[in-house]
Design a protein around this nucleic acid. Structure first.
Lengths: 206, 206, 206, 206
DNA sequence: AATGAATGAGTGTTCATTCAT
DNA sequence: GATGAATGAACACTCATTCAT
């Protein structure tokens, strides 16, 4: 989302620096996904990347910035994937289904990244102890979903429900489908997604 | 060694000890709810309770035992409340609504307790690094919910959906309603619950 | 060794108090022998005795006094036993043999007590960090042994060696026979003692 | 990953790291010798070395590793010294004398190191509470001594005694000579050693 | 005479961060 | 750019001791 010209006092980063940052972010993702946020110390992340601990501090202002960059990185990927899949789909019901299935698709292929994302979302706190993300950070996502519902209500395909409640529920259903699948790897993710699509179609329709 | 209600080998606890344990558990709940699991050190819990750090170690075998007792305490409360509300309710649809509304009711009055419960559930790990609870610990809850769905499917009121998917979704919807409400205290919890009841009624019915 | 009248400002101890002290000392002996001095906390000693931790503090000024009483108690026993065995024995060589054999005899029957004694001797330190016993505490023992050697040298049965060196060596040989036996319970203690008697007889004789 | 003298999987240690390790080991030796094993906390060792507590944890995996390194370091020294002195000595009697005198020589110059060695030997326990060294750890030493005795018995210079008893006694005589000297610094160590040599020569000879 | 509760200093260990090289 | 060394605060936990009951 950064503008191409790197304006506004933002120092431009060299290619090599970007590569290092990417490497560290990737290592952080893997470590967090494997051992959980609390056990993901900088030492562990550095060791996993095969670099010195100091490098992380050199490239990131602190642990918090590293974590935020992980979130940005992973979040960007998933948004891009869903955007691409949803493009051109017509009608609110189809949109709803497509959204669920697209996210699921991405989950299947990026399990680790999403696991790490969830860990950080849930656990990262700012210096003053407040959750850095938390439910509030989903606001953007909720608004995107609400647009789909509003569209459906406008066309008359959807009944007159509370769009925020539906968005929160929809979002949580997907998050937990993922968590359940991570905990039970034999669980049939695609079947779960299909069930979910049915469920929300019925919940929404007139 | 006391009397009839002392099971074998279980050391009896004095009244004063029970009181202290309860006080410490309450303090732990408040601290966890406020600053999160990771920041809830024994020092902080003790300070919040206005007691010395050692007292906690004196009354609990370790941090793990304290956390487990918090879980037992809070989990017991909520189960008791829901059981009581659900008793005597007839028919799967009514059961479904009642369950959602009963849990919501309890949430309104025990916000911090439930917040703490969630934190521990999500974060507590055993000495070997494995999650102490985690999604798998919901198994019992899922099975209880599946019984309601099976009942509805038997009577023909409910359609033929995957009961496990519904249970996971249902459970996550309630958890996140709570989380959303904690993050947005002005949010109308009761209206949210009513919407949720509608949503799942529609998702389940034939 | 206390005079029968309990004079000199020393408060007399009731029968029940003496019994408790003896019980605590016995428990301390067993715990120290089993887990070593460093792991022998008051809590452990109290638990082993089936009493409350506070009782120990009530009956003894502190851990140091308890340890000293253990030493007095065990040391007294062994001295009494050897004294009795040695009485009436004639000639320095016979005296030497008898001493070694008498101590060994006592060891066989009071393994735990002697183990505890050794632990305290080696580990107990005063508040200022100095060893409470240590080699110096053997002075009394060394002098007793030196009397036997002097006797033998006077009669001409023993050659003209340094009596202090012999006493230190003799004493250490017995201590380590014991330690070796504790570490290797199948070791033949009596055979070891007999060998030791031969060894010192040859080392001493003209 | 450095060069030829790096065996497989063994991380190479920088010069500066080796220096720090050596400094910490030296500090540990001094502190243990002065205040005893039990009082030798990492905090004390760090303070004595004029460094932060964390440095020790940085350079050693834990207290146990530090202690083992102290043992290795000191034990290696003494073994090397005795080996060098004993080399080329002919005949069991001369070997016996040389061994005693060589060890004594080393003691005179490395008092604190040997004191620390003894403390660790006697006190260090593994995580499960078992002695890390203890009498059994002398096995190697005993076997070395037994070879000297067997040699003397083969040549006929030594009588037919139990070699294990002699080894235990010999070893303990030297240990206690040292302990006695530490407790009584004015004691004439060389004279003691000479007496000991006589003593064991007479105890062994036909 | 005995207890159980509480204390507070001390333990080894972990970790994000800093900094000279 | 990168490193490894060092820091110091924080962690859970242990323990001898004190004290009201």
């Amino acid at each position: 989302m950064r503008s191409e010209n790197q304006s506004s006092g933002q120092k431009s980063r060299s290619f090599i620096e970007e590569a290092r940052r990417a490497q560290i972010i990737a290592s952080a993702v893997e470590v967090i996904a494997e051992v959980g946020f609390a056990q993901a110390s900088l030492a562990r992340i550095a060791q996993h990347a095969g670099i010195s601990k100091g490098v992380i501090s050199y490239h990131f202002a602190g642990k918090e910035e590293l974590m935020e960059e992980v979130v940005n990185s992973v979040y960007g990927e998933i948004a891009a994937h869903v955007m691409a899949r949803v493009e051109g789909v017509e009608g609110p019901t189809a949109l709803l289904r497509t959204h669920i299935l697209a996210v699921t698709e991405h989950m299947r292929d990026h399990r680790t990244r999403l696991k790490a994302l969830g860990e950080i979302f849930y656990n990262l706190r700012t210096a003053d102890g407040q959750p850095r993300y938390g439910v509030k950070a989903n606001e953007e996502l909720y608004q995107a979903m609400e647009q789909i519902y509003a569209y459906g209500q406008r066309t008359g395909e959807f009944r007159d429900f509370d769009r925020r409640v539906m968005a929160v529920t929809h979002s949580s259903a997907i998050d937990n489908m993922f968590a359940y699948w991570v905990a039970n790897p034999d669980h049939d993710l695609d079947a779960h997604a299909a069930e979910l699509a049915d469920l929300f179609e019925r919940a929404c329709r007139r």
